[in-house]
Design a protein around this nucleic acid. Structure first.
Lengths: 255, 255
DNA sequence: CGTTGAATTGACACCGTTCAACGACAGTGG
DNA sequence: CCACTGTCGTTGAACGGTGTCAATTCAACG
């Protein structure tokens, strides 16, 4: 898979760790060549605005992106993306989004016109099914967020988020052995976990005190990863990475 | 649209109030004929189990269905479906789900083998795009749940849920002018809103006391609908029903 | 008319918000 | 080099929202 990142520098991480192995070589080439433009954005760059008619979608190459909704003067983060994610592919079928797409830190993205996606959708059923899968994967992650918001208190929620991001980064080959780096600050974390930055601060110091995980200036470090994951009640199945839900072989053959 | 329900008694409510107008007559016929079996289930019937390989999907014709996750001896409701919803269409691309699909009250469903969906996916790009849209609509609803869990207290969350279900029923022609009927009980509502049944009870009596909405034995009645919706901070845009996000004309023409 | 499941109520502890204030640090310009 | 400034992180105290346990009432149904 490391090979794919060098061979397909723009799209090599798409579905990596999931069903990328089901992609044929010509599909990988087709996807890579569908990117008509590469852009580098600063932090907090608004890529797609809620309600705006979308005519292209964005595949994240480097950095992080968020899905945000601003309401009552407060920003809520309803999605988090790592390299390899086809961030707003769903805009192809929805046309207009109910949320904003925004960069977190500086980010490098590939842009795919909907015309190209339409062509793939009409002529490449196997690849287009993988596209569909990828948007449903985002939905599964969303579902898990809903679940964890319902059942965990703030400190466990952060632990869950950290566990998730760590795994997702690992799947695309971007995690360290003892943690990961992210431009998130405590306010961002609060906006992701449905709490206030003040309470997030207390939650983080609880995690530090209990030796679950350490968060400092965008560096997440855990001495014992399994301790972090069990504190956050994290079960990676919903990431569809090869566990009991993973699509191991079903999508392999011809469609 | 009432016409569609009589002409297509099984699938006439699919995407009704959304992009159904973009469906061609032969697509409606094709969908109707894709249902190879109609089943009637009792309440709490398990239609699809988490982790199980799915080979067919279920379109809800009458009644209600839920997406649930059981963890730590408690059940969490992460999705709610009304007639016309293609409840587990996403199982076509995901193969295995991370949650259960279950009936709430008694329900009548149409079953579509994935073979048929595969045929449509490969040969009917326009219809298959509407399928994709429908799964993304579920995702948008999920996103809104995440948002409201983050920002509202329990009593306002219920008000939001009531507003949503009311609108969704209305879209498929099944609401009353002053409310709607549902087999939900207070425990179900609690499981949907991420709270306990005891607290849900207090939330409901607050809503009654404040004259926002009345919930009794599965009957939801509001004297003033706009009061309910504003109390629940409800904005129907995310339901893609013709407001600013609705796909009014884009999907009309040939694909 | 008794049984059963659902709804209701009170008391109490914990979780989380809010407001206000303070501390740590990096970047900037004098 | 230092003072200034802004952002981010930290802390305390008061208050409101929610979970928990236990007990009671209510409605439906055989």
């Amino acid at each position: 898979m490391v090979d794919d990142v060098t061979r397909y520098p723009l799209t090599g991480r798409f579905l990596m760790g999931r069903t990328r192995h089901a992609m044929r070589e010509r599909e990988k080439e087709l996807l890579e060549s569908s990117i008509t433009e590469v852009a580098e954005y600063d932090r907090s760059h608004l890529v797609l605005v809620r309600g705006e008619l979308a005519e292209r979608s964005t595949l994240l190459i480097e950095g992080y992106m968020l899905r945000t909704i601003e309401e009552h003067g407060r920003r809520y983060i309803v999605g988090f993306h790592v390299p390899g994610d086809f961030v707003d592919l769903h805009a192809y079928a929805l046309k207009r989004l109910d949320h904003d797409i925004v960069t977190l830190g500086p980010a490098k993205v590939g842009i795919v016109p909907h015309e190209r996606i339409g062509h793939i959708h009409e002529n490449e059923p196997h690849l287009s099914r993988l596209f569909w899968f990828s948007t449903l994967l985002d939905a599964a992650i969303q579902r898990q967020w809903t679940l964890k918001l319902e059942q965990l208190k703030a400190s466990r929620r952060v632990a869950h988020r950290f566990s998730e991001v760590w795994r997702r980064l690992e799947m695309v080959g971007l995690a360290r052995s003892n943690g990961f780096r992210t431009p998130l600050n405590q306010t961002d974390l609060a906006d992701m976990c449905g709490t206030t930055s003040i309470h997030m601060n207390r939650a983080l110091s609880e995690l530090r005190r209990e030796d679950v995980v350490e968060f400092r200036r965008g560096l997440v470090i855990a001495r014992d990863r399994s301790r972090l994951e069990s504190f956050g009640d994290f079960n990676p199945d919903y990431l569809y990475g090869g566990g009991p839900l993973g699509v191991q072989h079903e999508l392999d053959g011809t469609d």
